[in-house]
């Protein structure tokens, strides 16, 4: 989860190995099912793409080739990794279209993307991504371009198919509602880094990073009585060419004056374990110079009441 320019799409493209060595330098480590992907042979990563990890994108109209039928594109995806006849692949494609809820898949398979509605196209994209039964599905803003009723259909579909295919899903979004609907675990990104991570419960009910607090205060809460005013974060997200020194969030942070010294502007906070340590929120971490106890106090006494 993060706003535009926070690096969430770039990270997922790196996982898929879709950055070219000419345009990007990748360091660190990406492990898929134990296999290291950073520095692996390009052809080895290519073999994993589509088969072990698949991806769906924000705008299904531009993400599908306009000149090939929906069926052809699914069949192609399936036959890259499976040595089967065209006929068998076609039958599989029809089955996939059926499973993602496209009516009359037998005739719709020969339609072109532009003949589908937005929701249908996203279903077809999902069918294509799942055609090789991947263990990891990355969905980059999968519902942002869709209307709310269609969005609900697609979110339901992703959840149902996740159960059915038993895949891990990485969902990339700026919409906290979508996150809460789907996610078990969340990483909040800001200026190219994860600044808080934890279970969905931890992030929504006991967040510890000032940026996460800001996000929660910025959005009108549909599930609570209307409030008088929203509580925006001041300022604007930083340019990634000139990221602020120290904690990238410091120019917008309301609480940096509570940190002793000038740590916020000089020292980048590490993502360290957070939470009460009772084990309630395993894996909860935040990158902030405020001491954990103080953060929890600020949330409980100052932030949480304002949001209710």
């Amino acid at each position: 989860m993060g706003e535009s320019g926070s690096g969430k799409s770039v990270s997922s493209m790196a996982v898929m190995g879709l950055h070219t060595s000419r345009s990007a330098r990748i360091s660190g480590s990406i492990r898929l099912d134990g296999q290291e992907l950073v520095g692996a042979k390009q052809d080895d990563v290519r073999r994993l793409r589509g088969q072990k990890m698949a991806m769906i994108f924000q705008d299904p109209l531009s993400a599908m080739h306009p000149f090939y039928t929906v069926g052809n594109q699914i069949i192609e995806a399936y036959r890259i990794h499976n040595q089967v006849s065209k006929k068998a692949a076609r039958a599989h494609a029809i089955d996939m279209l059926d499973r993602v809820g496209i009516p009359e898949p037998r005739s719709r398979i020969d339609a072109y993307p532009h003949q589908f509605s937005g929701g249908m196209r996203q279903r077809a994209m999902i069918a294509m991504a799942l055609s090789c039964d991947p263990s990891l599905l990355i969905a980059d803003e999968p519902t942002t371009a869709l209307d709310v009723t269609v969005q609900a259909q697609i979110l339901d579909l992703i959840r149902d198919l996740q159960q059915e295919f038993d895949s891990a899903v990485v969902i990339i979004t700026h919409d906290l509602g979508v996150v809460a609907e789907l996610a078990d675990d969340i990483v909040v990104m800001y200026a190219g880094r994860g600044i808080e991570q934890g279970s969905a419960e931890a992030i929504f009910n006991a967040p510890e990073h000032p940026y996460t607090w800001g996000l929660l205060g910025s959005m009108p809460r549909f599930d609570r009585p209307p409030t008088e005013r929203l509580l925006p974060i001041k300022g604007t997200p930083p340019s990634l060419i000139r990221v602020p020194s120290g904690c990238a969030f410091n120019p917008r942070c309301e609480f940096s004056d509570r940190v002793r010294g000038d740590a916020c502007t000089t020292e980048r906070p590490e993502l360290l374990p957070a939470g009460s340590g009772t084990g309630a929120h395993v894996g909860h971490g935040a990158a902030c110079h405020l001491p954990t106890a103080e953060r929890q106090q600020v949330w409980a006494q100052e932030i949480s009441p304002r949001l209710a």
Partner: peptide, 10 residues
């Protein structure tokens, strides 16, 4: 985008 999709298919 559809070129990215084609690459993502492997």
């Amino acid at each position: 985008d559809y070129i990215r999709t084609a690459r993502a298919k492997g």
